[in-house]
């Protein structure tokens, strides 16, 4: 019986202590924010949507290689010897056309590795974070500055050039073989 009343008394007292805290907090300013209307300022270096300044990209594949989830897709075509593609703003010479630079932001885990390794700092994280889209293919961001048909032409050109080179090499080899054979026959 005594325990019962002591319990009731203790419960009431401790609840009142708690209520006093709550009551005091009724008069402190609220800590919540009405989100779509107000927003926090994000700190410098926050990790949200990726962006690539494609003019500076030298097509070195470093970012694609370090990405732990493989969500950067790059394709490059080597520039011809007489072509000059200029330099990135950090001074690195650009030697290839970046015909494809896609980032699948659905797969990206925002780990910041790609921005750390980039030699020209052309891939970086912006503070844009409201990136929901209605279609899944819209989550793949295309950064290349080449029009699709031009890029396709570049790729075909390169393939042809390579094929021609290979054919020339094969022909040279055959010739050498023939010469060798002739020598042996002699």
């Amino acid at each position: 019986m005594r325990t019962y009343f002591r319990n009731v008394y203790r419960s009431l007292i401790t609840i009142l202590i708690g209520m006093r805290q709550t009551w005091r907090h009724l008069f402190t300013p609220s800590v919540t924010l009405q989100y779509p209307h107000e927003k926090w300022d994000l700190p410098v270096g926050t990790r949200q949507q990726l962006f690539v300044n494609i003019d500076d990209c030298i097509g070195c594949y470093k970012c694609a290689r370090i990405c732990p989830v493989d969500c950067i897709y790059i394709d490059t075509v080597k520039a011809k010897p007489d072509e000059d593609l200029g330099k990135a703003s950090t001074g690195n010479p650009i030697r290839q056309h970046v015909v494809r630079f896609d980032i699948d932001m659905f797969k990206c885990c925002y780990c910041n590795f790609c921005t750390t390794v980039c030699p020209t700092d052309c891939i970086y994280m912006t503070d844009k974070y409201e990136t929901s889209v209605y279609d899944r293919s819209n989550g793949i961001y295309h950064f290349s500055k080449y029009a699709p048909d031009y890029a396709a032409k570049l790729i075909v050109d390169e393939k042809e050039a390579e094929a021609a080179k290979a054919a020339a090499r094969a022909a040279a080899k055959e010739k050498a073989m023939a010469a060798k054979k002739a020598k042996v026959a002699e």
Binding site: S11, T14, I17, G18, Q21
Partner: peptide
């Protein structure tokens, strides 16, 4: 301290 007043020392919670 406030948190403890609110929850940890609350008799009902302890019981």
């Amino acid at each position: 301290v406030e948190f403890n007043n609110l929850l940890t020392h609350n008799h009902i919670f302890i019981e």
